[in-house]
């Protein structure tokens, strides 16, 4: 299996070597009544401090399950991690006892969810929910925790924080609720922040504000940000690197500029061609033909081959490894050269 591509230069790596977070060969399955669903099949990715990694994929591609596995919040059962390692600064999280894992959860790795209204507890004030981080992890008193909650609400620019700290989640707008979630997630200065479609439930203008806030917090604190999304626009604006997921695998992994300039996997290429462009009026948008694979019956070989326009006979036979095709760049396609150089399609 392909590992994190060897860097051409040590730039972007923390001193002491090794990335901040490294996921290797991660496999997650769900045991259901109908059979075993392999949701994540050998995901490799790495995140450096201060970097934004966008995980791009459609529903069911395994991006959220990967995030939940990193966070350690999979429902087990039915889910189980069958193989792989998740290392935070070298420590394998999967080998830890639950007690030690929950100490890391929230304090060193934090997560923001898609729908802040259902992700916040309706019967506690936002101040109590933010302050709970300090009370549980740091043993602060109720009064001190509330003071810290006000500071955090100021930091994520919730107006009139001193008064609003006593309000309940339903009294906030969607954007403000997501700010509350963010305040809660960054409370203990985590090293890794996972944002699972943080703007999907929001208005377009609010989306931009939330993304701006996340980028700013990342720059200030130097944390690594994993941004899970299916929004290519968000990726272009916010990400340093992109990992494209399909059928539980990473099919392409590249710096954001490379991937937009010249995709090296047919699926990525299809996604980019489906974006509406200014000046493209009157021209039909291209869609990726077919639909995502049935997780109970994944295609043999390359999971994308039934939908692929570059398909050759050997695609159904062998599962392509993530070929290193450049510095920090990989593509899980046997014919990445043809895709990259556009000699077809």
């Amino acid at each position: 299996m392909w590992k994190t591509p060897a860097p051409a230069s040590p730039a972007g790596r923390p001193p002491g070597g090794g990335p901040l977070l490294a996921v290797e060969n991660l496999h997650v399955e769900f045991v259901t009544r109908r059979g075993v669903v392999r949701a994540v099949n050998g995901v490799d990715c790495a995140l450096n401090a201060g970097e934004t990694l966008a995980v791009l994929g459609e529903s069911g591609s395994g991006k959220t399950v990967t995030a939940q596995a990193i966070m350690g919040i999979l429902d087990t059962p039915p889910a189980r991690v069958t193989r792989g390692t998740i290392r935070l600064r070298g420590t394998d999280l999967l080998g830890l006892r639950e007690e030690d894992r929950s100490r890391i959860r929230g304090s060193r790795i934090a997560m923001i969810f898609q729908d802040a209204l259902s992700a916040l507890n309706p019967v506690f004030t936002v101040g109590a929910q933010i302050g709970e981080m300090f009370r549980v992890h740091r043993g602060l008193s109720r009064r001190d925790a509330e003071r810290r909650a006000v500071e955090l609400m100021d930091r994520v620019r919730i107006p009139d924080a001193r008064r609003r700290v006593h309000d309940y989640p339903h009294r906030f707008s969607g954007g403000m609720r997501q700010r509350v979630m963010i305040a809660m997630a960054i409370a203990l200065d985590p090293e890794v922040l996972i944002a699972d479609e943080p703007t999907t439930a929001l208005d377009v203008t609010v989306q931009a504000q939330i993304m701006e806030l996340l980028s700013e917090l990342r720059r200030e604190s130097g944390m690594g940000l994993i941004l899970i999304t299916h929004d290519l626009g968000v990726v272009a604006d916010a990400a340093d690197r992109v990992a494209v997921m399909y059928g539980g695998r990473i099919v392409e992994n590249a710096p954001v500029h490379d991937i937009y300039r010249a995709p090296a996997h047919p699926y990525t290429k299809g996604l980019l061609e489906s974006i509406p462009r200014a000046g493209g009026k009157g021209r039909a948008l291209r869609a990726v033909e077919g639909s995502s694979p049935d997780p109970m019956a994944m295609p043999s070989g390359c999971v994308f081959h039934p939908r692929c326009s570059y398909r050759q006979d050997d695609c159904a036979a062998g599962e392509p490894p993530l070929h290193p095709i450049g510095p920090f760049r990989g593509s899980a396609c046997h014919y990445w050269r043809e895709v990259l150089h556009g000699s077809h399609g």
Binding site: S102, M111, F113, A119, V136
Partner: peptide
């Protein structure tokens, strides 16, 4: 099964809490 329970787990709270 509620979202706020997933959040509570992600905050690193004990199962009892």
């Amino acid at each position: 099964r509620a979202g706020y329970i997933r959040t509570a787990v992600a905050k690193g709270l004990s199962r009892r809490r």
